[in-house]
């Protein structure tokens, strides 16, 4: 990036027109992302009357109410789905990180016994993924259908994340390993006391990637699980995109109407908020995480 915040001496003063065009372009980018969010959040807090008067959406609620949120958290399908998503995300991310760290560390060591064939074995899966039907049949034959394990076990490791971590582990200076070994430390202790503390940035990014993918997953939930087991994204899909009725929130009465707009928007907000919460903390690591193990130019 250009030197911190000052224009170098050789660069012309920008013309006002260029500056204005740039400003407009940036504003458009920012607004295109933020305005939809603002409307969704506003509508979720608005009263039904305001939403109807506004024709389906509200830019800023005049009489903010938590009614929609109270309804979806009052037991019912959304509340349950939220627990499922949270559980799968936490357990899945922990399991994925543990397995990825183990394999990445082993593969980062020089001259590992069997290291090269294992690396090829792993990288080949990147070239040739197993496919939807064989994966489904495997999960079925392992009796994992309708079990939450079916949302975790088949997605435990991701080759990209593995390569990112391995790259970080390899960048830990060999001298540190040697010094620790002279002090009598084994690989396990070296990993825990030296390598992991030095790789916090990578662990944060890889942890974020895993948790986002668990949190956002819906397709395999739709084929592996019945509706009693659905995570939040699959519920969102059915009730917001599919326009089905949120029966047991008590929101819709018996007549077959789609869930009121405010409730749909509240579900959307609930599905998005966890990502918005972790995002600012991890953002500074993105570039480093994405570029390690990714293309080096």
């Amino acid at each position: 990036m250009s030197a911190a915040g000052v224009r170098p001496a050789w660069m012309e003063k920008p013309r006002p027109l260029t500056q204005a065009a740039k400003g407009v372009a940036l504003a458009v980018v920012v607004l295109l992302v933020l305005v939809p969010f603002l409307i969704i959040v506003s509508t979720s807090f608005a009263s039904d009357r305001e939403v109807i008067d506004g024709g389906g959406w509200v830019l800023w609620p005049q009489h903010p109410t938590l009614r929609a949120y109270r309804e979806i958290f009052d037991g019912g399908i959304v509340g349950h789905a939220l627990w499922v998503s949270a559980g799968v995300t936490l357990v899945g991310t922990a399991a994925s990180l543990a397995c990825t760290i183990g394999l990445a560390y082993a593969l980062s060591r020089r001259d590992l016994f069997g290291g090269k064939p294992v690396l090829l074995l792993v990288l080949f899966t990147f070239l040739f993924p197993p496919g939807m039907i064989p994966s489904f049949l495997l999960v079925k034959s392992m009796h994992l259908l309708n079990s939450y394990a079916s949302l975790i076990a088949p997605f435990l490791l991701n080759v990209f994340n593995l390569v990112v971590l391995r790259g970080f582990f390899q960048s830990v200076p060999e001298e540190l390993h040697e010094a620790a070994r002279l002090d009598g430390a084994g690989e396990w202790l070296i990993l825990r006391r030296i390598v992991l503390p030095l790789s916090k940035a990578a662990l944060a990014v890889v942890g974020l990637f895993y948790s986002v993918s668990y949190w956002n997953a819906w397709f395999y939930a739709s084929i592996y699980l019945d509706s009693d087991h659905w995570p939040l994204q699959q519920v969102l899909r059915t009730y917001v995109i599919g326009g089905a009725q949120l029966a047991d929130t008590g929101a819709g009465d018996a007549s077959a109407v789609a869930a009121p707009q405010t409730i749909q928007m509240a579900v959307l907000v609930v599905a998005t908020v966890p990502i918005l919460l972790v995002y600012p903390f991890l953002q500074k690591y993105f570039t480093k995480g994405v570029l390690t193990g990714a293309v080096k130019s």
């Binding site: 183990g102 560390y105 016994f113």
Partner: peptide, 13 residues
């Protein structure tokens, strides 16, 4: 030790 660490990941693949 390293192979033990790698085992769950390899088993997954």
């Amino acid at each position: 030790v390293l192979l033990l660490l790698a085992a769950p990941g390899v088993a997954y693949f």
